[in-house]
Structure formats: C-alpha cells, structure tokens
Design a protein around this nucleic acid. Structure first.
Lengths: 135, 135
DNA sequence: ACTATGCATACTTATTTACTAGGATATAAA
DNA sequence: TTTATATCCTAGTAAATAAGTATGCATAGT
C-alpha cells in the first residue's frame, strides 16, 4: 500500500482545518480531539505541510494553523506529496533514487512511469474543497 | 511506495518467461541468471503466480514454468495482484480490512476508492505482451 | 509572569520487507 | 534403480520502515 497513516491523517487534518472556515486559525488540540489523533503526531504532519507552504503557523495562545489558500485551490496531491514525500508507486521513480544500474535493459520502467502518471493525474484532479461536501 | 520488490521482480520474471517463447518450459535457474535474482526468492514469487493460475509448473529435470495464457492475454494487473496481494493504495481498501470504525463519518473513503480505480484501470489496461517490444 | 500554543529532536516498539536456509518431493535420464 | 535437476514447503533473520511517544524549548497573547 502506497499511502500510510501519515498521508491519511494529513488529509483528515486538512479537511478538518477547511471545515472550520476559510481563514480560521485552528489549534492542533481541537483537530486532535475531533479526529482522535494525538496532538504530537499531528505536530509532525503539520510541520511538513508548513514546509510545503500549504499551511501557515501562528504561535502562542490563540495560535494554530491557517490554510495558505482557499480549499478550492489546494490539490489533494500536494497534501499527499508533502506528507508522504512522494506518491511514486516504485522506489526507482523517487527523487533520491539516483541512477538505476539496470537502466537501458529495463523493460518495465515505461510501465511504472505510466502508473505514476495515472496516480498523479488523479490526486491532482481532486481539490480539498471536493471533500467537504458532507460536512 | 506501493509496489515492492515482490511485484517488480515478479513482473521481470514474467517478462523473461514470455521472452523465451509462447509455450516454453523455463526453469527458475535460467531466469535467476539472466535477471540477477536469487532462485530461492524467485521460487516464492513463482509459487504465488501458480496459485493465481497465471503460471503452470513442471517438476523434475527439464521442468520449469509455462505461461497459462499467451502474453497478449495476461494483464500486468493480474501479475501485480498475485505478487503483492493487492494494489490498493490504502489499508482500508484491502480485502481483509474488515469494518472501518470511522465509516459513516469518513470524508475520505470516496477519494481513496477513486484512486484505487485509477490504479486498477491502468494496470489492467497493460498486457504482458506490451512490455516485450524491446526484447 | 503565566499559559497555550507551535517547534525540534530523539527515542521506542511493532511491523513489514527482502531475503536466506534447509530440506522434502517429483521425475527424466543414465 | 540411481542420480541429477527441478519445484514445493516452511522457517528463520537482518534491515528498514511505520507509527507513534517523550522531552524540552521558543514564542506570544492575556
């Protein structure tokens, strides 16, 4: 399976943020309660999303996280890539894989690239706002 | 990453079988040499493909494995599902997952099902024969 | 000052991956 | 009937990854 709890929880967290309203500043404590996920684990995920410029953080009391864009403009693919590092289905397509020793004689690479494209196309076609329907 | 060496090696093994000709009976020793994969590991993968009725085995000297269908009729998806158990991108879509405790309040399940469909559609659209071109 | 938040790092435990090992069983050929 | 060459079956293991916990520090509103 390609998507671990990191990606799944990150998506749930992002949906939760979005549900609190466009420019709401939401602390992880609240998300943790509603989603039954530990604050400590959410902190790690939130940090990844801040690095990816998807979330903005506000420190101190009344602090929390704010979406950097309206939910209609945030691709689910961006969330997953930020949380998981990659959505690539095989190791040899990951950014830090380097040069494959079987390159040149490999009959499968084009197939994996096609699979990767199918996945990226899908995850980038769905926006965060698309998942808010059933509030 | 969704596809481990199991699925990747299984695909390479199947391509190798197919390259030896339609009804050839090919021992793992030969595949192992050509593909630089240990016989012992290939044995495990071959066993999965036999269970899935993709390969037929012939024991004893001059034995080996024979494709159960022409390469044009074997979906890459069937090979991957046999080797990996599933191509599902998240745990909650796997066969033995049982009932999800968050079912009913889950905003993400439809998204994951869509991703799963995109993946299945792709891997089932490519046939083993499609990967033999560059011999 | 006090307190609620995020930030950073390290640690831990369980699971999965990617093999390897040793033998049992079948069968063609000598 | 023996021997060599296959597959078949089960178990073991070292390394990596996943999934969190724990501890403490930094920041900022009241």
């Amino acid at each position: 399976m390609m998507i671990s709890t990191k990606g799944r929880y990150a998506l749930r967290m992002m949906i939760d943020f979005a549900q609190q309203g466009e420019n709401a500043c939401v602390p992880l404590r609240e998300v943790a309660q509603r989603q039954s996920i530990s604050v400590k684990y959410l902190e790690q995920l939130a940090s990844l999303l801040v690095q990816a410029a998807i979330l903005r953080s506000v420190r101190g009391p009344k602090g929390g996280y704010v979406l950097m864009a309206p939910a209609t403009d945030i691709k689910v693919g961006d969330i997953l890539r930020a949380a998981e590092g990659t959505c690539a289905p095989v190791a040899c397509l990951e950014d830090d894989f380097g040069v494959c020793p079987r390159r040149g004689e490999c009959e499968t690479i084009a197939f994996w690239e096609g699979l990767d494209q199918a996945i990226e196309n899908y995850v980038d076609s769905v926006m965060l706002a698309d998942l808010l329907a059933k509030k």
